[in-house]
Design a protein around this nucleic acid. Structure first.
Lengths: 325, 325
DNA sequence: TACGGATTTGATAACGTTAACTGATAATTC
DNA sequence: GAATTATCAGTTAACGTTATCAAATCCGTA
């Protein structure tokens, strides 16, 4: 139909016809059926985004950024939460595959690629791993300097004179946590100190129990490094319950900054990740890959791995600026 | 094809053929093309969700809940942020309409229904307004007791002996804000006090400027009621910058609770909204409407308006429990 | 044995779009 | 003025699924 030409623009339509068609479109309230377009064109103008949890402000910010970029390309984003479950993640990928998404951004629940992801790869759907790495498939990668950021933070604590710096968190199997632990170990080793990690803390209760135990030991820790947002909050809750004073009784640096960190009882020193930039870069990379997979010719190599820097935000909880607390 | 029968179950297929078909499906890595299904069946197995901002934990929680409910129905959720812009919202609704969503959940940017929404209504796509009301279209409604929650909070401040209770926030044109102001006025009037509202505070700077001015007046306010999350945080930042003590210099209650509220300098008293329940109820209502629009017979009236209660969470910033701060 | 019904499989068409082609004119070039 | 090219409108077919219909097979019973 000539209508298609009018809607999609481009080729030879006389101004008169164009006007008539547009009038008809308005009169009838016509909306192109995306399903039919998709059926014809093989791929939907949608991309998928899998994150562990939308309630986590870090991922929410990423999602926002991804959506904005997708919007500028006329694409919609199918956002889905894996709830940190490998099975849920797998099912959701399958549902997205059925909807013939044009590309997938994923914060993988585990390092090894899911079977469904390999199916997507075979179907030549561009893949970008966001925040975490993904092995076993050919995927783009956008991550932050986890190890470096952690190392800088722990070095800072050591520079304040702390000798027993304990590192706590959850799930060392997750790529980001693993990397941060690496950074922690590097900093400790460099200073000739004994690393000490607890990475099985799922709840506020277990976190508090651990801290109570540690703080009752004779040579008790004087500084704490928390490996992720959730653990940081659990630690803060425990610290309040135990009526400890930050940083006098215990210095604290958390990995991942958040909006309210400056407003806490003691403002929190934290390693800030560029969440917005992360989402944006990943989305851009994905659309680059999508474009390339369409145009056959252009095979100039593109950057498939981006590592963004972190920033140590000094506030009071590490021992700096304690006057302004 | 017989394949369709196997995939969708139901009618007459011999066990032998079924086995053969399933084997072939596995062997070939076949996934039903949702686009074609949709083209045939008129509506996609997707619902839409429009929220103002995913970075706001309240909406993020709602989104999470909606997605879970959708998942149990085998539907995916097209989440989109309007960024509080009426125009963006309108475009996004159009894109969703093109994708032939089965239903739409929306936190409307303004009370009057958008033209696109009326188009959806004409296309008989079920609509549910979430958190805010929507006029001019036939839509379900799930909201919280905004007026009642605000009234309870302000009454509480008055009971603490405060006489000049100032109410600040942004955008009285938004339904929720409007309702909360109503509750504030009711409580003030009941106590024979003069209401005093400032609802043009978009940034942390303007908020601080206002507070500085007010606190320099001779009969300065002793209590503050903030109308939304963002303003609450701006107020907290201002309070810190001005080195005021909560609740001694200024008592504060905020509408909308958040995870870190108990961990603030002075733990924040807040009106908690049941975000999870809100999202869940709205999604359930939508799927109810979708089901009904398919089955022609069942026309038993269903509840199209749900109002959920709020809860005043007493912490230290209102003047209660100040010892535990 | 023949007949009605239950069970199973296959064929056909249609959903709305667009790529590729067919014509038909109008405009331009030599 | 003839040949070429640019511009415009319309036709046909195909994307993958499923509703509907048609055909084939099997079973039990009169």
């Amino acid at each position: 139909m000539t209508v298609s030409r009018v809607v999609n623009g481009g080729s030879y339509v006389s101004p008169a016809t164009e006007k008539r068609v547009k009038a008809a479109i308005r009169r009838l309230g016509y909306t192109p059926n995306e399903a039919a377009r998709m059926l014809k064109g093989q791929r939907a103008r949608m991309i998928g985004l899998v994150v562990p949890d939308l309630a986590d402000s870090f991922f929410a910010t990423c999602a926002n950024a991804v959506q904005q970029v997708a919007g500028t390309h006329g694409y919609m984003t199918l956002i889905v939460t894996s709830e940190r479950s490998v099975e849920t993640e797998s099912n959701e990928i399958a549902m997205m595959a059925a909807r013939r998404i044009a590309g997938l951004l994923i914060v993988p629940s585990r390092v090894g690629a899911d079977k469904r992801l390999r199916e997507l790869e075979q179907a030549e759907i561009p893949l970008v791993a966001l925040d975490r790495t993904l092995d076993g498939v050919d995927a783009g990668q956008v991550i932050v300097e986890n190890a470096g950021g952690a190392e800088e933070a722990v070095r800072h604590l050591i520079a304040h004179g702390h000798r027993r710096v304990v590192c706590i968190g959850y799930d060392a199997k997750v790529y980001t946590i693993h990397q941060r632990i690496l950074g922690y170990r590097r900093a400790m080793k460099e200073a000739g100190l004994q690393p000490e990690m607890w990475t099985n803390l799922t709840t506020a209760e277990t976190t508090e129990a651990l801290l109570r135990r540690l703080m009752n030991e004779p040579d008790r820790p004087t500084a704490l490094f928390t490996l992720n947002n959730v653990t940081t909050i659990h630690a803060l809750q425990a610290v309040r319950a135990m009526q400890l004073r930050l940083p006098a009784d215990l210095a604290l640096i958390g990995f991942d900054d958040f909006e309210l960190a400056p407003l806490l009882d003691t403002p929190l020193t934290a390693v800030r990740q560029p969440a917005l930039e992360l989402g944006r870069s990943a989305a851009r990379m994905l659309f680059d890959m999508i474009r390339r997979s369409r145009e056959v010719g252009t095979d100039a190599k593109m950057e498939r791995r981006i590592v963004l820097p972190t920033e140590l935000i000094l506030r009071a909880s590490c021992g700096c600026n304690s006057h302004s607390s």
